[in-house]
Computed example of a mutant assay.
Amino acid sequence: MQDPHRLSTTLARLAVESLIEEVSLTPKPGLVDRIDQGSHNDLTFSLMVESAKSLYTTFYNMAMVAYNEGTSQFLREKIGEIGREGERQMFQVTKGVNTHKGAIWSLGLLTAAAAIHKGQSDEITLCHTAGEIARYEDRFIPHQITNGIKAVQKYGVHGAKAEAQQAFPHIRKFSLPVFKATVNELDEKTAKLNAFLALMANLDDTCLLHRGGLEGLQYAKQYAQHVLNAGNLHELQIMNEQFKERNLSPGGSADLLAATIYLYKISQFTFSTEEVYATIN
C-alpha cells in the first residue's frame, strides 16, 4: 500500500524542481534566468530559487489533503486555503515581491490532481482532473484586483483562472506535444525552450498584456512563432534585448512552462512504494 506522506514528499520535490528548472532555463526573453533579470528590476535568479524552495511545504500539504479525495468544493477550498498560506510564506521570503503566485495556482492544482490519482495517471488526465477542481467555487477567496485580472477585464482574454478551468488547453495542445516531440529527438533544454516558445506564440499572456497592451502581446506572439519555425534558438538572446527595451515579460508562459515540466516529471516517475521511499532516504 502506498504511503500518502511518501507520495506527497515526492510530488512536492518535483514541483519545486520544476520551478527551479524553469527559472534556470537560459536565455528566456524578458524573464529572469541565469544571465540577467529580463524586464524585472525587482527580481533576481537567487530570489526566484529561494521563493521556489519556500513552496515545498505548500505543495506537500496540497498533496496530502487531496490523497484519497475526489474533486469537490471541499478540496478546492482546502487547497485554496493552503495556497494562500503559501503566498504569505513566499512574500515573506521575497519581501513582498510576487515571484510565484501564478505557479502556486497551476502547479498546486496539478499536485492535487496527481495525489488524487496516486501518481498513476498520464499528463492529459491530470490536466482534466485539475480543471475539475478549478471549476468548483472557492467561497473564501479574498476580493483582489491583480494585474492579471485587470488585463482579463480590459482585453476580454482568458487568464490563469480560465486556463485551469478549461484543463490547461495551452499545455495539452501546444507546450506538452512540442516538449515531448523535442525531448525524444534532441535534448531537455531544447525541449523546454521550444515548449516555452510554443506557449508564448499561442497564449494571450496577461503579463504581456499588462506591460505592452495588445501591440506588445502580438509582437511577442509573432516573434516567438518566428523563432520556433526557424529553429534558431540563438536568436533568443536578441529577443531578450528587444523584450527588455519594450519592458515585456511573458510571465504567464513561464508559469505554464513550469507546469509542463512538472507534468513531464510526474509522467516519468514510478510512484510505487519502493520508488517513493528511495527518493527520500
Rank of each mutant, 00 (worst) to 15 (best):
Q268I: 03
A201T: 09
T9H: 12
T111D: 11
T71E: 15
Q89F: 10
K53R: 15
L55M: 12
T270Y: 08
I116M: 09
G131V: 03
Y223I: 02
F59Y: 15
N240F: 03
R246C: 02
T26H: 02
V65E: 12
H234A: 11
L126T: 02
I116D: 09
N41M: 04
N247P: 00
L209P: 10
A258I: 02
V157K: 05
K95W: 02
P27I: 05
V152S: 10
K189N: 13
I35T: 07
P4N: 09
G212T: 01
A12R: 05
G83D: 13
T57N: 05
F74M: 07
L214K: 13
G159F: 12
L248G: 10
H40K: 07
M62R: 09
P29S: 08
L19S: 05
L217N: 07
N98F: 00
E77S: 14
E245P: 00
L19M: 14
T190G: 00
R211Y: 02
K95A: 08
G38T: 05
N281K: 12
I145Y: 09
Q237G: 00
I124N: 06
E50H: 07
I82N: 08
E50K: 11
G83W: 13
N41L: 11
V65D: 03
D204H: 14
P177H: 10
R6C: 03
A164T: 09
H234Q: 11
N202L: 06
H234T: 12
A130T: 09
G131A: 04
T190M: 04
Q153T: 06
A220L: 07
F271V: 02
E241M: 02
L233V: 06
A115W: 08
W105P: 00
V178H: 04
F179A: 06
F45E: 04
S272T: 15
H128I: 05
E17A: 10
Q166D: 11
M62H: 06
N240T: 02
E17R: 15
K180T: 10
A230Y: 04
T146K: 08
K192M: 15
Y262D: 01
R84G: 07
F74T: 07
K189F: 08
H128Q: 13
V32C: 01
Y264I: 01
H40G: 10
R172L: 07
F196Q: 10
F271I: 02
G212P: 03
T260C: 15
S18H: 09
R135G: 00
M1W: 00
V32K: 03
I124P: 00
Y219L: 11
H117T: 10
L110P: 04
P29E: 04
G159I: 10
A259I: 00
A191E: 08
I133L: 13
Y264K: 02
R135V: 01
G30I: 01
K265C: 04
G38R: 02
A230S: 15
Q120D: 14
I171E: 14
N98Q: 05
R211C: 02
K154M: 12
L7H: 09
A130V: 09
L19N: 08
T9A: 06
S267R: 12
H117Y: 03
S46C: 06
G38H: 03
I20S: 01
S106P: 00
K154C: 07
I133D: 03
L186C: 07
R84T: 05
Q2M: 14
I145E: 12
K265N: 15
T99V: 15
